[in-house]
């Protein structure tokens, strides 16, 4: 065997080793944690109206977030036996879910809607791009009675799941607000390290069309 052959074999062997060992490290992508600063962006923006009037109670049936291409039916979610909030089922047609112990969108208080960031083998969840929202982005919750509550994003936060800010999310507020919640950040085994929480305030409303309830 010539010196060149030896070098060639050694190089090939090392390359194969590097290929083999590098296979595991390509999945999880790191993500910011902590509070993300809202950044200006032009489309799909609304300005929160000061003192937008609260709406009558009516459960949400659809959620639209044009800035990130979300247009999804909304199901109802309760509590699991362990006291945690239930999440939408893991299916190919992923949907958002409204936490039914929270106000309906447009009522005074924090209305809470949850959605998956990913749904296992089905790929991206309905809130896959939630962290891309910025202050002023528009969110529309369509209600069972035909009305629509329009919200403007006021903040987007990414927080460690171990320090979920329950008071900020579920605590009383003196105006109609909305919380959109999903997971985010680095993947940890079969889940995620963080939660992404979008805070929004009511900016307008569409009345029910005649004949609808």
């Amino acid at each position: 065997m010539t010196a060149f052959s030896r070098r060639a074999f050694t190089t090939a062997a090392l390359a194969s080793l590097l290929t083999a060992c590098g296979g595991q490290g390509t999945k999880g992508t790191a993500s910011d944690s902590g509070t993300s600063a809202p950044q200006p962006r032009s489309p799909h923006r609304t300005v929160p109206a000061a003192g937008a009037r609260p709406l009558a109670r009516s459960v949400p049936v659809r959620l639209q977030v044009p800035a990130i291409g979300v247009d999804t039916p909304v199901i109802r979610l309760g509590l699991a036996p362990d006291g945690t909030v239930r999440v939408p089922p893991v299916t190919a047609d992923d949907r958002a879910g409204w936490y039914r112990h929270s106000p309906t969108p447009g009522q005074t208080g924090p209305s809470v809607i949850l959605g998956h960031v990913t749904v296992g083998k089905y790929g991206d969840g309905v809130f896959r791009r939630l962290a891309e929202l910025h202050r002023g982005d528009r969110i529309v919750a369509r209600l069972e009675n035909g009305a629509a509550a329009e919200f403007a994003v006021t903040a987007v936060r990414t927080v460690p799941r171990t320090r979920f800010p329950a008071d900020d999310v579920y605590g009383n507020v003196d105006r109609p607000e909305l919380r959109l919640i999903t997971c985010g950040g680095a993947r940890t085994g079969d889940g995620y390290a963080d939660n992404v929480i979008v805070f929004a305030a009511l900016s307008g409303a569409e009345s029910p069309t005649p004949g609808e309830r």
Binding site: H116, V117, D190
Partner: peptide
């Protein structure tokens, strides 16, 4: 209370391929 029952813990809204 506007949210009548506050859930415990953080929502688990991310199912990876595990």
């Amino acid at each position: 209370d506007q949210v009548s029952v506050v859930p415990s813990g953080a929502p688990d809204t991310g199912v990876t391929e595990g």
